[in-house]
Design a binder for these strands. Structure first.
Lengths: 221, 221
DNA sequence: GCGTGTGAAAATCTTCACAGCG
DNA sequence: CGCTGTGAAGATTTTCACACGC
């Protein structure tokens, strides 16, 4: 089975979700001038078990050397290829409230190869304003951005009540990948991928664990 | 087995991670004046299957009525109790860069019952500055905040290279729950819960799915 | 010899399908 | 009768443990 075939069919979702972590660890190793790494070391750097790391990598192909380990650069580029990072994924951020502005100023996107090519807002009073060196554009520009600039990822940073509208506009313009920061369930056609990041959800999960700790401590202090 | 006992032992992690979604849907229903809901309806509103919803709820106890459904208010408060939201979880945000300021201005925390009681930064030039109506405090205030104000959750919004230091300071002050926005693996004692939200990771996962779609389309257009 | 790659086993999570209760 | 709660089946994910190849 060719690498491309392996990539095409099922890499398990759980595995895909960990690949960015491996890539991050490999990049750090490369920056530190380390050329080769064992599964044990890389797993430690990524916070997983070595068995899981090897199983995950086995879905991509066989890029290690038995008795030695992995070539850092090589493995990094194989993972990047599996994730589809060899191509460009231009990003637009919709909603120029506090969060949208913070995201617009965030340098991490560019560092990991995601170009933010547009900032948008539905409010005519915000459109035309300059944010982080870019002019905010109206939602009606979406179709053009997709057609002429290859826009392919939308980030929703609107308030909750505008999120579904923003999403519908992105989908209508042809975007298939949405990163949503609004605490709502977005409804989309099934060929559109949505990932929602909700701060309150994260805090509530932490509250659960905090509570659990407190109880465990009371039982066995 | 009592409810408290059920809560104490294992609610599966996957189940815990969905409870906030149910709570959000229930709150929306309550706001819309709806008093009773079936598993089918609630599951739809939360984006899961009805079987999964019922299984998840069965871990909390038996709060539905056969042939009828669930009382919206009642179920919401049982879920809140299971998550530990009956108690207060005061939050501090560490790092007053772009993201920290956006989080400081975010209203969603308060809406879901998390009080932000302090903003901190390690940079003396930022300490003392006013952000969203609060004076930024130095890291050395952490111990006092934990002791006197019950601070229990730390949000790390620093740059990557300051994140582990910030985390160590939080842990040293006695905090057991950390929400991390820096793209690094934090190392903590095992009784500390960390959840990391990394925007680039999310985008990379979306890139994978986008690529997959593109391939699928090429194969079967 | 050493560390990868991988079948097989174990654990976890999701779906099915229906008994049971209001 | 209708919908919940739940054992059992099925799917997925993780861990184990060792054969294999440099």
């Amino acid at each position: 089975m060719s690498t491309a075939a392996a990539t095409r069919r099922g890499i398990p979702d759980a595995s895909v979700a960990r690949l960015p972590g491996y890539l991050r660890a490999l990049t750090a190793l490369a920056d530190a001038g380390i050329a080769s790494v064992s599964s044990e070391e890389l797993a430690g750097a990524a916070g997983v078990s070595s068995a899981m790391l090897r199983k995950d990598l086995s879905h991509l192909g066989s890029y290690g050397v038995r008795g030695v380990g992995y070539d850092v650069e090589r493995l990094a580029s194989e993972i990047a290829a599996a994730l589809g990072l060899t191509q460009d994924w231009p990003v637009a951020i919709v909603g120029m409230g506090n969060l949208g502005r913070a995201l617009a100023a965030y340098r991490g996107f560019a560092e990991r190869g995601f170009r933010v090519i547009a900032l948008l807002d539905r409010d005519p009073r915000v459109v035309g304003e300059e944010v982080s060196g870019r002019v905010v554009r109206p939602m009606t520009d979406l179709a053009t951005l997709v057609r002429d600039e290859g826009l392919s990822v939308g980030v929703i940073a609107t308030a909750s009540d505008g999120a579904q509208d923003a999403c519908d506009a992105l989908v209508a313009a042809g975007i298939r990948s949405v990163l949503n920061f609004a605490p709502v369930l977005l409804s989309v056609p099934e060929d559109v991928a949505v990932r929602t990041v909700d701060l309150s959800t994260e805090l509530q999960i932490l509250a659960f664990h905090g509570q659990r700790n407190a109880v465990a401590e009371a039982v066995a202090p």
